[in-house]
Design a protein around this nucleic acid. Structure first.
Lengths: 225, 225
DNA sequence: ACCTGAACACCGTTCAAGT
DNA sequence: ACCTGAACACCGTTCAAGT
Protein backbone atom coordinates (compact mmCIF):
# COMPACT_ATOMS: atom_id res chain seq x y z
CA UNK A 1 0.00 0.00 0.00
CA UNK A 2 2.92 2.38 0.50
CA UNK A 3 5.04 3.81 -2.30
CA UNK A 4 8.25 2.23 -1.05
CA UNK A 5 9.35 -1.30 -1.83
CA UNK A 6 10.03 -2.45 1.71
CA UNK A 7 11.74 -5.68 0.77
CA UNK A 8 12.14 -6.63 4.39
CA UNK A 9 9.62 -5.87 7.12
CA UNK A 10 11.39 -2.80 8.38
CA UNK A 11 11.33 -2.13 12.06
CA UNK A 12 9.38 0.91 13.09
CA UNK A 13 11.86 3.67 13.87
CA UNK A 14 12.18 4.84 17.41
CA UNK A 15 9.58 6.85 19.24
CA UNK A 16 6.83 6.15 16.76
CA UNK A 17 5.02 3.84 19.11
CA UNK A 18 2.69 5.57 21.49
CA UNK A 19 -0.48 4.95 23.45
CA UNK A 20 -2.70 6.12 20.60
CA UNK A 21 -1.16 3.76 18.09
CA UNK A 22 -1.38 0.86 20.51
CA UNK A 23 -5.05 1.59 21.23
CA UNK A 24 -5.89 1.87 17.55
CA UNK A 25 -4.29 -1.48 16.82
CA UNK A 26 -6.05 -2.99 19.85
CA UNK A 27 -9.48 -1.88 18.61
CA UNK A 28 -8.71 -3.17 15.12
CA UNK A 29 -7.54 -6.48 16.47
CA UNK A 30 -10.54 -6.88 18.79
CA UNK A 31 -13.14 -5.94 16.19
CA UNK A 32 -11.50 -7.93 13.43
CA UNK A 33 -10.22 -11.07 15.12
CA UNK A 34 -12.21 -11.23 18.34
CA UNK A 35 -11.28 -11.29 22.01
CA UNK A 36 -9.51 -14.66 21.88
CA UNK A 37 -7.07 -13.38 19.30
CA UNK A 38 -6.43 -10.22 21.29
CA UNK A 39 -2.96 -11.20 22.46
CA UNK A 40 -0.03 -9.09 23.49
CA UNK A 41 2.06 -10.92 20.93
CA UNK A 42 -0.51 -10.44 18.15
CA UNK A 43 -0.91 -6.79 19.10
CA UNK A 44 2.83 -6.19 18.94
CA UNK A 45 3.12 -8.00 15.63
CA UNK A 46 0.36 -5.86 14.17
CA UNK A 47 2.34 -2.83 15.28
CA UNK A 48 5.52 -4.20 13.71
CA UNK A 49 7.26 -4.18 17.04
CA UNK A 50 8.67 -6.58 19.62
CA UNK A 51 6.19 -7.95 22.09
CA UNK A 52 7.63 -6.08 25.02
CA UNK A 53 7.61 -2.71 23.32
CA UNK A 54 3.95 -2.30 24.25
CA UNK A 55 4.89 -2.53 27.91
CA UNK A 56 6.76 0.74 27.54
CA UNK A 57 3.39 2.47 27.17
CA UNK A 58 1.04 0.28 29.22
CA UNK A 59 1.80 -1.43 32.48
CA UNK A 60 -0.22 -4.51 31.61
CA UNK A 61 -2.85 -5.91 29.28
CA UNK A 62 -5.65 -4.95 31.69
CA UNK A 63 -4.60 -1.33 31.36
CA UNK A 64 -5.01 -1.57 27.59
CA UNK A 65 -8.45 -3.11 28.06
CA UNK A 66 -9.50 -0.23 30.29
CA UNK A 67 -8.15 2.34 27.86
CA UNK A 68 -9.86 0.74 24.85
CA UNK A 69 -13.19 0.67 26.67
CA UNK A 70 -12.79 4.25 27.75
CA UNK A 71 -11.88 5.35 24.24
CA UNK A 72 -14.85 3.63 22.60
CA UNK A 73 -17.37 4.70 25.22
CA UNK A 74 -16.23 8.27 24.78
CA UNK A 75 -16.95 7.88 21.07
CA UNK A 76 -20.72 7.59 21.59
CA UNK A 77 -22.07 10.41 19.51
CA UNK A 78 -24.61 12.30 21.55
CA UNK A 79 -27.57 13.60 19.58
CA UNK A 80 -27.74 17.38 19.80
CA UNK A 81 -29.69 18.67 22.77
CA UNK A 82 -33.33 19.26 22.01
CA UNK A 83 -33.21 17.21 18.82
CA UNK A 84 -36.28 15.22 19.77
CA UNK A 85 -39.70 16.73 19.98
CA UNK A 86 -40.30 15.17 23.35
CA UNK A 87 -37.98 14.08 26.17
CA UNK A 88 -39.03 10.57 25.32
CA UNK A 89 -37.83 10.92 21.73
CA UNK A 90 -34.52 12.18 22.95
CA UNK A 91 -34.21 9.32 25.42
CA UNK A 92 -34.78 6.88 22.60
CA UNK A 93 -32.09 8.52 20.50
CA UNK A 94 -29.57 8.43 23.31
CA UNK A 95 -30.22 4.81 24.15
CA UNK A 96 -30.04 3.83 20.52
CA UNK A 97 -26.68 5.57 20.21
CA UNK A 98 -25.35 3.47 23.08
CA UNK A 99 -26.83 0.30 21.60
CA UNK A 100 -25.33 1.04 18.22
CA UNK A 101 -21.88 1.51 19.70
CA UNK A 102 -22.10 -1.79 21.59
CA UNK A 103 -23.50 -3.64 18.60
CA UNK A 104 -20.86 -2.22 16.26
CA UNK A 105 -18.05 -3.10 18.63
CA UNK A 106 -18.83 -6.46 20.19
CA UNK A 107 -15.39 -6.29 21.70
CA UNK A 108 -16.38 -3.42 23.99
CA UNK A 109 -19.16 -5.58 25.25
CA UNK A 110 -16.68 -8.28 26.04
CA UNK A 111 -14.44 -5.77 27.74
CA UNK A 112 -17.40 -4.62 29.82
CA UNK A 113 -18.04 -8.14 31.02
CA UNK A 114 -14.39 -8.96 31.61
CA UNK A 115 -13.45 -5.94 33.66
CA UNK A 116 -15.64 -3.54 35.64
CA UNK A 117 -15.70 0.15 34.80
CA UNK A 118 -13.23 2.25 36.75
CA UNK A 119 -13.08 5.72 35.31
CA UNK A 120 -15.83 8.09 34.36
CA UNK A 121 -16.60 6.44 31.05
CA UNK A 122 -19.97 7.08 29.56
CA UNK A 123 -20.73 9.77 32.09
CA UNK A 124 -21.84 12.21 29.43
CA UNK A 125 -24.61 9.88 28.27
CA UNK A 126 -25.72 9.14 31.81
CA UNK A 127 -25.87 12.84 32.59
CA UNK A 128 -28.07 13.55 29.57
CA UNK A 129 -30.39 10.65 30.30
CA UNK A 130 -30.81 11.67 33.92
CA UNK A 131 -31.64 15.21 32.88
CA UNK A 132 -34.30 14.04 30.45
CA UNK A 133 -35.84 11.69 33.02
CA UNK A 134 -36.02 14.44 35.62
CA UNK A 135 -37.43 16.76 32.98
CA UNK A 136 -40.12 14.19 32.25
CA UNK A 137 -41.25 14.52 35.85
CA UNK A 138 -39.65 11.50 37.52
CA UNK A 139 -38.50 11.97 41.09
CA UNK A 140 -34.85 11.50 42.03
CA UNK A 141 -35.11 7.86 42.99
CA UNK A 142 -37.27 6.92 39.99
CA UNK A 143 -34.89 8.71 37.64
CA UNK A 144 -31.88 6.84 39.00
CA UNK A 145 -33.64 3.48 38.76
CA UNK A 146 -34.94 4.27 35.26
CA UNK A 147 -31.48 5.25 34.06
CA UNK A 148 -30.01 2.03 35.43
CA UNK A 149 -32.79 -0.06 33.90
CA UNK A 150 -32.25 1.53 30.49
CA UNK A 151 -28.54 0.77 30.59
CA UNK A 152 -29.14 -2.76 31.85
CA UNK A 153 -31.55 -3.46 29.02
CA UNK A 154 -29.25 -1.91 26.45
CA UNK A 155 -26.27 -3.99 27.54
CA UNK A 156 -28.39 -7.13 27.66
CA UNK A 157 -29.84 -6.59 24.19
CA UNK A 158 -26.45 -5.83 22.67
CA UNK A 159 -24.95 -8.87 24.34
CA UNK A 160 -27.79 -11.01 23.08
CA UNK A 161 -27.22 -9.89 19.51
CA UNK A 162 -23.45 -10.23 19.69
CA UNK A 163 -23.80 -13.73 21.10
CA UNK A 164 -26.05 -14.72 18.21
CA UNK A 165 -23.56 -13.41 15.68
CA UNK A 166 -20.61 -15.05 17.39
CA UNK A 167 -20.84 -18.39 15.66
CA UNK A 168 -21.34 -16.95 12.20
CA UNK A 169 -18.57 -19.23 10.98
CA UNK A 170 -21.56 -21.32 9.96
CA UNK A 171 -23.31 -20.39 6.77
CA UNK A 172 -26.76 -19.80 8.26
CA UNK A 173 -27.60 -16.58 10.02
CA UNK A 174 -28.52 -16.80 13.69
CA UNK A 175 -32.21 -16.39 12.92
CA UNK A 176 -32.54 -19.42 10.67
CA UNK A 177 -30.37 -21.54 12.95
CA UNK A 178 -32.56 -20.67 15.91
CA UNK A 179 -35.73 -21.32 13.94
CA UNK A 180 -34.69 -24.79 12.84
CA UNK A 181 -33.51 -25.58 16.37
CA UNK A 182 -36.80 -24.54 17.93
CA UNK A 183 -38.92 -26.14 15.23
CA UNK A 184 -37.14 -29.45 15.87
CA UNK A 185 -38.20 -29.58 19.53
CA UNK A 186 -40.88 -32.05 20.65
CA UNK A 187 -44.18 -30.31 19.98
CA UNK A 188 -45.95 -32.07 22.84
CA UNK A 189 -43.63 -30.61 25.44
CA UNK A 190 -43.02 -27.23 23.85
CA UNK A 191 -46.10 -26.42 21.78
CA UNK A 192 -45.75 -22.64 21.86
CA UNK A 193 -42.03 -22.70 21.21
CA UNK A 194 -42.42 -24.92 18.16
CA UNK A 195 -45.38 -22.92 16.94
CA UNK A 196 -43.68 -19.56 17.36
CA UNK A 197 -40.29 -20.63 16.00
CA UNK A 198 -40.50 -18.28 12.98
CA UNK A 199 -41.55 -15.32 15.13
CA UNK A 200 -38.79 -16.01 17.67
CA UNK A 201 -36.27 -16.22 14.86
CA UNK A 202 -37.53 -12.91 13.50
CA UNK A 203 -37.00 -11.35 16.93
CA UNK A 204 -33.23 -11.91 16.62
CA UNK A 205 -32.93 -8.94 14.29
CA UNK A 206 -30.91 -6.65 16.52
CA UNK A 207 -31.96 -3.04 16.30
CA UNK A 208 -35.70 -3.54 15.58
CA UNK A 209 -35.97 -5.94 18.51
CA UNK A 210 -34.04 -3.52 20.71
CA UNK A 211 -36.39 -0.70 19.78
CA UNK A 212 -39.43 -2.84 20.50
CA UNK A 213 -38.22 -3.55 24.02
CA UNK A 214 -36.96 -0.02 24.50
CA UNK A 215 -40.33 1.47 23.65
CA UNK A 216 -42.04 -0.85 26.10
CA UNK A 217 -39.52 -0.07 28.82
CA UNK A 218 -39.78 3.67 28.26
CA UNK A 219 -43.57 3.49 28.34
CA UNK A 220 -43.46 1.69 31.65
CA UNK A 221 -40.84 3.94 33.16
CA UNK A 222 -42.51 7.18 32.08
CA UNK A 223 -46.06 5.99 32.74
CA UNK A 224 -48.14 8.70 34.40
CA UNK A 225 -45.69 11.49 33.71
CA UNK B 1 -3.32 -49.90 56.20
CA UNK B 2 -6.55 -49.55 58.11
CA UNK B 3 -9.62 -48.26 56.51
CA UNK B 4 -8.98 -44.58 57.23
CA UNK B 5 -5.49 -43.31 57.96
CA UNK B 6 -4.60 -42.03 54.50
CA UNK B 7 -1.15 -40.79 55.40
CA UNK B 8 -0.56 -39.94 51.78
CA UNK B 9 -3.10 -38.32 49.51
CA UNK B 10 -4.51 -41.51 48.10
CA UNK B 11 -5.41 -41.59 44.48
CA UNK B 12 -9.09 -41.91 43.73
CA UNK B 13 -9.79 -45.55 42.86
CA UNK B 14 -10.68 -46.41 39.33
CA UNK B 15 -13.99 -45.65 37.72
CA UNK B 16 -15.07 -43.16 40.37
CA UNK B 17 -14.63 -40.23 38.04
CA UNK B 18 -17.60 -39.53 35.84
CA UNK B 19 -19.30 -36.65 34.08
CA UNK B 20 -21.45 -35.79 37.07
CA UNK B 21 -18.51 -35.51 39.42
CA UNK B 22 -16.61 -33.39 36.94
CA UNK B 23 -19.56 -31.04 36.46
CA UNK B 24 -20.10 -30.69 40.20
CA UNK B 25 -16.48 -29.74 40.72
CA UNK B 26 -16.65 -27.36 37.77
CA UNK B 27 -19.63 -25.49 39.23
CA UNK B 28 -17.94 -25.33 42.63
CA UNK B 29 -14.75 -24.04 41.11
CA UNK B 30 -16.52 -21.46 38.97
CA UNK B 31 -18.74 -20.13 41.73
CA UNK B 32 -16.01 -20.18 44.34
CA UNK B 33 -12.91 -19.08 42.50
CA UNK B 34 -14.25 -17.34 39.40
CA UNK B 35 -13.84 -17.92 35.68
CA UNK B 36 -10.13 -17.08 35.61
CA UNK B 37 -9.37 -19.86 38.09
CA UNK B 38 -11.47 -22.34 36.14
CA UNK B 39 -8.57 -24.31 34.74
CA UNK B 40 -8.33 -27.89 33.60
CA UNK B 41 -5.44 -28.35 35.97
CA UNK B 42 -7.28 -26.80 38.92
CA UNK B 43 -10.38 -28.81 38.11
CA UNK B 44 -8.43 -32.07 38.07
CA UNK B 45 -6.65 -31.19 41.30
CA UNK B 46 -9.99 -30.53 42.98
CA UNK B 47 -11.06 -33.98 41.84
CA UNK B 48 -7.86 -35.54 43.16
CA UNK B 49 -6.97 -36.79 39.75
CA UNK B 50 -4.40 -36.23 37.05
CA UNK B 51 -5.10 -33.38 34.66
CA UNK B 52 -5.77 -35.61 31.71
CA UNK B 53 -8.25 -37.84 33.50
CA UNK B 54 -10.97 -35.30 32.81
CA UNK B 55 -10.40 -35.78 29.11
CA UNK B 56 -11.66 -39.32 29.44
CA UNK B 57 -15.13 -37.88 30.06
CA UNK B 58 -15.12 -34.64 28.10
CA UNK B 59 -13.52 -34.00 24.75
CA UNK B 60 -12.44 -30.48 25.64
CA UNK B 61 -12.92 -27.64 28.08
CA UNK B 62 -15.60 -26.08 25.87
CA UNK B 63 -17.66 -29.21 26.24
CA UNK B 64 -17.51 -28.84 30.01
CA UNK B 65 -18.60 -25.23 29.71
CA UNK B 66 -21.60 -26.23 27.62
CA UNK B 67 -22.54 -28.99 30.05
CA UNK B 68 -22.24 -26.72 33.10
CA UNK B 69 -24.43 -24.09 31.49
CA UNK B 70 -26.97 -26.69 30.48
CA UNK B 71 -27.02 -28.19 33.96
CA UNK B 72 -27.51 -24.87 35.73
CA UNK B 73 -30.11 -23.57 33.30
CA UNK B 74 -32.08 -26.77 33.79
CA UNK B 75 -32.02 -26.05 37.52
CA UNK B 76 -34.24 -22.98 37.22
CA UNK B 77 -37.13 -23.84 39.46
CA UNK B 78 -40.34 -23.09 37.65
CA UNK B 79 -43.12 -21.74 39.84
CA UNK B 80 -46.13 -24.05 39.76
CA UNK B 81 -48.54 -23.33 36.94
CA UNK B 82 -51.30 -20.97 37.95
CA UNK B 83 -49.44 -19.84 41.07
CA UNK B 84 -49.96 -16.17 40.26
CA UNK B 85 -53.31 -14.53 40.36
CA UNK B 86 -52.75 -12.98 36.96
CA UNK B 87 -50.61 -13.96 33.97
CA UNK B 88 -48.56 -10.90 34.77
CA UNK B 89 -47.85 -12.17 38.30
CA UNK B 90 -46.72 -15.45 36.89
CA UNK B 91 -44.51 -13.76 34.32
CA UNK B 92 -42.85 -11.82 37.11
CA UNK B 93 -42.22 -14.99 39.06
CA UNK B 94 -40.69 -16.76 36.08
CA UNK B 95 -38.41 -13.88 35.19
CA UNK B 96 -37.33 -13.49 38.78
CA UNK B 97 -36.45 -17.18 38.92
CA UNK B 98 -34.18 -16.74 35.92
CA UNK B 99 -32.65 -13.60 37.38
CA UNK B 100 -32.02 -15.33 40.68
CA UNK B 101 -30.24 -18.20 38.99
CA UNK B 102 -28.00 -15.86 37.03
CA UNK B 103 -27.31 -13.66 40.04
CA UNK B 104 -26.52 -16.67 42.24
CA UNK B 105 -24.19 -18.18 39.69
CA UNK B 106 -22.27 -15.34 38.07
CA UNK B 107 -20.24 -18.03 36.37
CA UNK B 108 -23.21 -19.07 34.21
CA UNK B 109 -23.46 -15.51 33.07
CA UNK B 110 -19.83 -15.63 32.05
CA UNK B 111 -20.39 -18.93 30.30
CA UNK B 112 -23.31 -17.37 28.44
CA UNK B 113 -21.13 -14.56 27.17
CA UNK B 114 -18.18 -16.79 26.32
CA UNK B 115 -19.99 -19.43 24.31
CA UNK B 116 -23.35 -19.26 22.53
CA UNK B 117 -26.15 -21.61 23.49
CA UNK B 118 -26.27 -24.81 21.46
CA UNK B 119 -28.74 -27.22 22.99
CA UNK B 120 -32.26 -26.69 24.18
CA UNK B 121 -31.29 -25.12 27.48
CA UNK B 122 -33.85 -22.99 29.20
CA UNK B 123 -36.54 -24.09 26.81
CA UNK B 124 -38.96 -24.91 29.61
CA UNK B 125 -38.89 -21.32 30.86
CA UNK B 126 -39.28 -19.91 27.38
CA UNK B 127 -42.24 -22.18 26.73
CA UNK B 128 -43.99 -21.04 29.89
CA UNK B 129 -43.35 -17.37 29.24
CA UNK B 130 -44.64 -17.61 25.68
CA UNK B 131 -47.81 -19.32 26.89
CA UNK B 132 -48.46 -16.60 29.43
CA UNK B 133 -47.84 -13.83 26.92
CA UNK B 134 -50.22 -15.41 24.41
CA UNK B 135 -52.71 -15.92 27.22
CA UNK B 136 -52.47 -12.25 28.03
CA UNK B 137 -53.67 -11.48 24.52
CA UNK B 138 -50.46 -10.68 22.67
CA UNK B 139 -50.30 -11.76 19.06
CA UNK B 140 -47.63 -14.19 17.87
CA UNK B 141 -45.10 -11.59 16.82
CA UNK B 142 -45.60 -9.44 19.91
CA UNK B 143 -45.27 -12.48 22.16
CA UNK B 144 -41.98 -13.50 20.55
CA UNK B 145 -40.58 -9.97 20.81
CA UNK B 146 -41.77 -9.62 24.40
CA UNK B 147 -40.19 -12.92 25.41
CA UNK B 148 -36.90 -11.90 23.84
CA UNK B 149 -37.01 -8.47 25.49
CA UNK B 150 -37.65 -10.02 28.90
CA UNK B 151 -34.67 -12.36 28.54
CA UNK B 152 -32.47 -9.56 27.22
CA UNK B 153 -33.31 -7.35 30.17
CA UNK B 154 -32.83 -10.20 32.64
CA UNK B 155 -29.41 -11.08 31.29
CA UNK B 156 -28.40 -7.41 31.21
CA UNK B 157 -29.52 -6.77 34.78
CA UNK B 158 -27.80 -9.89 36.10
CA UNK B 159 -24.63 -9.00 34.25
CA UNK B 160 -24.75 -5.49 35.63
CA UNK B 161 -25.01 -6.76 39.17
CA UNK B 162 -22.34 -9.40 38.76
CA UNK B 163 -19.99 -6.84 37.27
CA UNK B 164 -20.49 -4.56 40.26
CA UNK B 165 -19.71 -7.38 42.68
CA UNK B 166 -16.67 -8.50 40.73
CA UNK B 167 -14.17 -6.23 42.38
CA UNK B 168 -15.37 -6.84 45.92
CA UNK B 169 -11.79 -7.53 46.91
CA UNK B 170 -12.01 -3.93 48.03
CA UNK B 171 -13.67 -3.25 51.34
CA UNK B 172 -16.42 -0.98 50.08
CA UNK B 173 -19.52 -2.40 48.48
CA UNK B 174 -20.19 -1.47 44.86
CA UNK B 175 -22.86 1.07 45.86
CA UNK B 176 -20.63 3.20 48.03
CA UNK B 177 -17.77 2.98 45.56
CA UNK B 178 -20.03 4.18 42.79
CA UNK B 179 -21.45 6.96 44.94
CA UNK B 180 -18.08 8.39 45.87
CA UNK B 181 -16.95 8.11 42.26
CA UNK B 182 -19.97 9.98 40.95
CA UNK B 183 -19.94 12.53 43.73
CA UNK B 184 -16.33 13.36 42.88
CA UNK B 185 -17.16 14.36 39.29
CA UNK B 186 -17.09 18.04 38.29
CA UNK B 187 -20.53 19.37 39.22
CA UNK B 188 -20.50 21.97 36.44
CA UNK B 189 -20.29 19.34 33.72
CA UNK B 190 -22.36 16.63 35.37
CA UNK B 191 -24.83 18.40 37.67
CA UNK B 192 -27.48 15.66 37.67
CA UNK B 193 -24.97 12.86 38.08
CA UNK B 194 -23.34 14.50 41.07
CA UNK B 195 -26.71 15.43 42.53
CA UNK B 196 -28.19 11.96 42.13
CA UNK B 197 -25.07 10.05 43.22
CA UNK B 198 -26.80 8.59 46.30
CA UNK B 199 -29.87 7.52 44.33
CA UNK B 200 -27.73 5.97 41.60
CA UNK B 201 -25.74 4.09 44.21
CA UNK B 202 -28.99 2.86 45.76
CA UNK B 203 -30.05 1.54 42.35
CA UNK B 204 -27.18 -0.97 42.38
CA UNK B 205 -29.08 -3.20 44.79
CA UNK B 206 -29.66 -6.14 42.50
CA UNK B 207 -33.07 -7.71 42.88
CA UNK B 208 -35.06 -4.54 43.84
CA UNK B 209 -33.60 -2.71 40.87
CA UNK B 210 -34.32 -5.67 38.62
CA UNK B 211 -37.93 -5.75 39.78
CA UNK B 212 -38.33 -2.04 39.18
CA UNK B 213 -37.24 -2.38 35.59
CA UNK B 214 -39.13 -5.63 35.13
CA UNK B 215 -42.39 -4.04 36.24
CA UNK B 216 -41.90 -1.17 33.84
CA UNK B 217 -41.02 -3.51 30.99
CA UNK B 218 -44.00 -5.77 31.67
CA UNK B 219 -46.32 -2.77 31.83
CA UNK B 220 -45.10 -1.58 28.47
CA UNK B 221 -45.22 -5.00 26.87
CA UNK B 222 -48.68 -5.86 28.16
CA UNK B 223 -50.15 -2.39 27.69
CA UNK B 224 -53.64 -2.49 26.24
CA UNK B 225 -54.15 -6.22 26.84
C1' DA C 1 13.39 6.68 27.66
C1' DC C 2 12.32 3.26 24.51
C1' DC C 3 12.81 -1.23 22.67
C1' DT C 4 14.71 -6.13 22.43
C1' DG C 5 15.19 -11.39 23.22
C1' DA C 6 15.52 -14.87 26.52
C1' DA C 7 13.30 -16.84 30.26
C1' DC C 8 9.57 -18.01 33.72
C1' DA C 9 5.32 -19.70 35.20
C1' DC C 10 1.29 -20.54 33.45
C1' DC C 11 -2.51 -22.47 29.94
C1' DG C 12 -5.28 -26.29 26.82
C1' DT C 13 -4.38 -30.27 24.51
C1' DT C 14 -1.76 -34.39 21.99
C1' DC C 15 0.44 -38.48 22.57
C1' DA C 16 2.50 -42.75 23.98
C1' DA C 17 2.31 -45.46 27.74
C1' DG C 18 0.53 -47.77 31.79
C1' DT C 19 -3.41 -50.54 34.29
C1' DA D 1 -11.90 -48.23 29.13
C1' DC D 2 -9.82 -45.27 32.20
C1' DC D 3 -5.98 -42.75 33.87
C1' DT D 4 -1.01 -41.03 33.85
C1' DG D 5 3.25 -37.97 32.88
C1' DA D 6 5.94 -35.87 29.48
C1' DA D 7 5.74 -32.82 25.81
C1' DC D 8 4.03 -29.12 22.54
C1' DA D 9 2.48 -24.76 21.27
C1' DC D 10 0.63 -21.20 23.24
C1' DC D 11 -0.17 -17.14 26.91
C1' DG D 12 1.14 -12.63 30.10
C1' DT D 13 4.89 -10.80 32.25
C1' DT D 14 9.87 -10.22 34.47
C1' DC D 15 14.37 -9.22 33.67
C1' DA D 16 18.86 -7.98 32.02
C1' DA D 17 20.58 -5.95 28.20
C1' DG D 18 20.96 -2.98 24.23
C1' DT D 19 20.35 1.89 21.91
Amino acid sequence: MTNRPEPIRRRVPRNTLNRERVLGAAVDLLDHAGPDAFTMRALAQRLGVGTMAVYSHFKAKDEIIDAVRERLLAEVELPTVGSGRTPRDELRELCRAVYRLLADHPSVLHLLTVRPVHGDEGTAVVERILGLLLGAGLDRSAAARAQTALMQYTVGAALWTARGRQRSGDQEDPGTRLRTRFAALPAERYPHLVDLAPELAAAQDGLPQYEHGLDALLSGLLAGH
